[in-house]
Amino acid sequence: MIPFILCLILFLIGLYGIITQKNLIKIILGLAIMEYSVNLFLIMIGYIDGGTAPIFSEKFHISSYVDPLPQAMILTAIVIGLATTALLLAMAIRLYRKYGSFDIRKINSLKG
C-alpha cells in the first residue's frame, strides 16, 4: 500500500507545481513529475512479489512472470512524454525569445 501512497504524493507534488509556479520551466518540471508518477503507478500494477522478467525461457514458469503489458504501456507513455516535454521546452525557449522572460505573469497578450 505504501508505494501507492508515495505515488499519489508524487502526483500531487507535480500538480502543486503546475498550479502554483509562475515560471514556465517549473511548470514543465511539474508536468514531468506527474508523468513519472503515472508511469510508476502503471508499472506497479503489473508487479508480482518475487516475479521474474517476462523473457521466454525454460528456467521459469509463465506464472512467475511479472505482467509485461503495463511495461509495454509505460514504454509507449515514456516515448510520448519525451515528445511532449521536448516540444514544451522548445516552446518555452521561443516564448523567452519573444517576451524576454519565463514569468507567466509577463506573458499575457491573450485576454478575454
Partner: peptide, 16 residues
C-alpha cells in the same frame, strides 16, 4: 530523433 531534438534545443539556446 533525439539527436535532432538536442541539436534543435541547443541551437535555439545559442540564439537566445
Amino acid at each position: 530523433a533525439i539527436t535532432t531534438i538536442f541539436i534543435a534545443l541547443v541551437v535555439y539556446k545559442d540564439e537566445v
